[in-house]
């Protein structure tokens, strides 16, 4: 019994390690230049064994985006479940995004450089927004609450979503390119205020 538990545990850890390592490599080098042997080599496991966990590079990439979505989704959910004013909620979401970009830069890089740039990799298995469902759902709930409370303007979902997420993505990109003169976090107040002003009820 206990040995089974241990085995499952060990497998889960291994799986986690593969995801972490692949995430770093994909984020840094891009999807196509990263190979399965390279990932396996980095961990010190055989290519054959890695295929036991993920049957293709595409499936591995899809698992990564799901985990990123789940992570961001769970963080935003905490904000949604709070009683904060929408203005403060926006600040929290921006902070979460930038904090993630700083502490786990490969997550945001992967999202921007792999998920959004190599859509063909995600066609089968990640149709539409399935693999980022948890993240998108929380953003929807954030918007829905804001409109229901009379704090946000009722508009097309994608107009609002693009404004919010495109803005944050753009800032992280500029930061990654070392174009921003200041630390990313120092923009949180201004950016939150801009987003709030753009989305609030006129």
């Amino acid at each position: 019994m206990s040995s089974t538990t241990e085995r499952v545990d060990r497998k889960a850890k291994k799986r986690e390690k593969i995801v972490r390592t692949a995430l770093k490599l994909f984020a840094k080098q891009g999807f196509y230049t990263t190979t399965i042997p390279e990932i396996a080599g980095k961990i010190g496991m055989s290519v054959g064994n890695l295929y036991n966990y993920f049957s293709s590079k595409e499936i591995l990439a899809q698992e990564i985006i799901r985990e990123i979505s789940a992570y961001l989704g769970s963080r935003i959910r905490e904000v949604n479940d709070s009683d904060l004013h929408v203005r403060e909620k926006i600040r929290r979401i921006v902070s979460i995004y930038f904090e993630t970009a700083r502490n786990e830069p490969e997550m945001i890089d992967f999202f921007l450089r792999v998920y959004l740039s190599n859509r063909e990799v995600f066609h089968e298995g990640c149709e539409g927004m399935i693999c980022v469902n948890e993240f998108v759902t929380e953003i929807m709930i954030f918007f829905d609450d804001g409109v229901a409370n009379g704090e946000l303007k009722n508009q097309d979902f994608f107009s609002a979503f693009g404004l919010f997420m495109g803005y944050l993505g753009g800032m992280v990109f500029l930061n990654g390119e070392r174009i921003l003169p200041r630390r990313l976090e120092s923009y949180i107040d201004d950016i939150s205020e801009n987003i709030y002003n753009a989305l609030k009820v006129p």
Partner: peptide, 23 residues
């Protein structure tokens, strides 16, 4: 509300609805 129906099917939590809808 921003394209999301303001009223959910009877007894269905919004998160469940939106999650399923997304899929």
């Amino acid at each position: 509300h921003m394209g999301i129906p303001a009223r959910m099917p009877l007894g269905v939590p919004r998160r469940a609805y939106l999650g399923l809808a997304g899929i």
